[in-house]
Write a protein that binds this DNA or RNA. Structure first.
Lengths: 347, 347
DNA sequence: TGAAAACCTGCAATCGATTGCGCACCCCTC
DNA sequence: GAGGGGTGCGCAATCGATTGCAGGTTTTCA
């Protein structure tokens, strides 16, 4: 043991990090008693407990998380992870992710857990099981399946406290929460059709399950209306507005006619909007635009964006609720949240 | 020790969490050697090293962070903390914070560190020293001083790897990075004056150091122009758009005349914009509006918001750069970032 | 060939906490 | 007054890794 520090009372300011043994010595008890007292164990009588707690406070002692975590097997930390298998250079600063993350963090910190953020740039096989085994967190929230469905499945089979924001996929062994992507997309396209639009562009990165669902909804709606799908109108677009902008400009340049755009996300829709504006196309007179998400941005765009609203706050609340139930050992089902169209000015 | 797990090779799927001793046994060496091999220690010859690493990979072993952190004294984690002394119910989902946080997280994760997010709702005296002592992270980035200047000072005196986003204050013992708030505000008000505006409203929560600086810039500019400050025009507004909206509506209701609004943040400006719109006031014809921040939102508002741009990406990069230098033991100075006015349509 | 140098590897202490088990003491009760 | 039940507290093992030190083997060089 290191030598007892001198003049602890006189110059409390310079006190190094105290250990539990220090408090034990100061209180004239053993570390067992200190540990139990700080943990509000009924084994220690209330008066002793208070005394020890007071001593700890007076000396500015706090339990060292490293020791506590090792011994007690609980970190009181939730990890929010974003796998970027589809696009390694997408950043955390993506508005959709940030908005969802903000709500998640609010919910988690309201439960007095810490939030650990992990960005997984190029997921190597086994990344998730490895991450789980590293014991950095008690539970995981995966935001977006990316192309990691199998990996997540594998991890979820052995590890209960894991929930996923994303599409509900067949053969899914994990608990997911997500929006009704197919239904939302169908409703969006229906609205465009009802407005008399017939040549509707789809913009989105179909590598992602959620976007695939939205594409399916798009096709469903066209099919039901008896309109053949034109492959030219289905354009890839990443999660940055720039590629959407380029895609729309490309269409215009190639002289492909269209009278509406269904964007698989608001960020993409804003990119499309800019492309149309710079090309002198009037929205919504010449071309209608509808997005997906209803980010804060949507309300403030010009023209204000009509979009399919995902209730991220509710989604985040559900994810965290499920996760904490799972931490207690309970199985929880997956959930699909309803969406609704928010009518603004771009349609 | 627990009994050696049977049939490890046959049913690798069901293997529980392996420990370093398991790998040692499999490789026929001691844990010392495994530990060193995994840490790329030159004490172990390269061929042995590779062999052991391969065994670890094959069996899906990863080092348990709890043990490693305890023993090695390093967590490879950076904590981003937001003290909310001024307003306990502000959420992480605030757009300004999220945007800065996104850039911080990008920078930190690019350096292969984990990001821990902590929201401090009602900072109790000593919260920061306690947090530091809990050993959850190697370094701290505090976003916004709130009213915790003294607390941060106290912590920084004993703990080097700590940087702060915020105003540069007198008697400051810590390293801060922030924008030129006074200069930015002065430039904004100058621009309004140059446009012929004379009765300029200030909207902002002056409890915060940064906002106080912006208020000072506002007063500076008026003073230099020989315009007396009208207390009626200085209105409190929190970080949500709602209070800004209410404040502007209040002004209109009380019949207080004004021809411009300088908002201390973009979110506040958007609230003001809405209030003006619903009251039938034309922007910028009747009233000019200028914000502060240049969030993504600003570009998309209607009318598009003229604002004082803070370069958050650069700011985040500087904060993280300084923090990592401090982790190496180097002292770093504070920095004040230049700002510039982004002209759009609201002025 | 022998001694020194260089190279590997393992023992055991250590990081800072938690907790099962058992001892000591006190108070009742018959 | 002896036995029994309850209460309060400490001993020591344990969580899973890292690392100084020392011992053993191989290489090098005279």
């Amino acid at each position: 043991m290191r030598p007892p520090r001198a003049k602890d009372d006189e110059k409390g300011k310079t006190a190094g990090p105290l250990k539990m043994t220090d408090i034990a010595r100061l209180a004239g008890v053993s570390t067992s008693t200190v540990s139990r007292a700080l943990a509000e164990s009924p084994l220690i009588p209330a008066t002793t407990r208070r005394q020890i707690q007071q001593i700890a406070i007076d000396h500015g002692y706090v339990i060292d998380q490293r020791g506590q975590r090792l011994r007690s097997n609980r970190t009181r930390t939730i990890c929010v992870a974003i796998p970027l298998g589809h696009e390694a250079d997408q950043l955390i600063s993506d508005p959709f992710f940030l908005q969802l993350f903000g709500h998640l963090a609010d919910e988690i910190s309201a439960r007095h857990y810490d939030v650990l953020l992990s960005r997984i740039p190029s997921p190597a096989p086994g990344w998730l099981v490895r991450h789980v085994q590293s014991q950095k967190a008690d539970g995981y929230i995966i935001v977006g399946q990316s192309n990691q469905h199998e990996e997540i499945n594998a991890a979820a089979r052995a590890f209960l406290p894991l929930v996923v924001w994303g599409a509900h996929l067949p053969e899914q062994a994990y608990c997911s929460v997500g929006s009704d992507n197919v239904g939302g997309a169908r409703a969006a396209v229906d609205a465009l059709l009802q407005a008399g639009r017939r040549r509707i562009v789809f913009l989105g990165a179909t590598a992602l399950p959620e976007i695939q669902m939205r594409l399916r909804g798009y096709m469903n709606a066209l099919e039901r209306a008896g309109i053949p799908v034109d492959e030219d109108l289905i354009q890839p677009a990443h999660f940055t507005g720039d590629t959407a902008l380029a895609a729309v400009q490309g269409l215009i340049a190639r002289g492909i006619a269209f009278d509406a755009v269904f964007a698989a996300s608001d960020v993409i829709a804003l990119g499309a909007l800019r492309a149309l504006q710079t090309s002198g196309v009037q929205v919504p007179t010449d071309v209608s635009v509808i997005g997906f998400d209803d980010l804060d941005l949507a309300e403030h765009s010009h023209p204000r964006l009509t979009t399919v609203r995902q209730d991220l706050k509710h989604g985040a609340a559900a994810l965290v609720e499920f996760l904490f139930r799972r931490l207690e050992g309970e199985e929880t089902p997956s959930a699909t949240l309803p969406v609704r169209i928010v009518r603004r000015d771009s349609l």
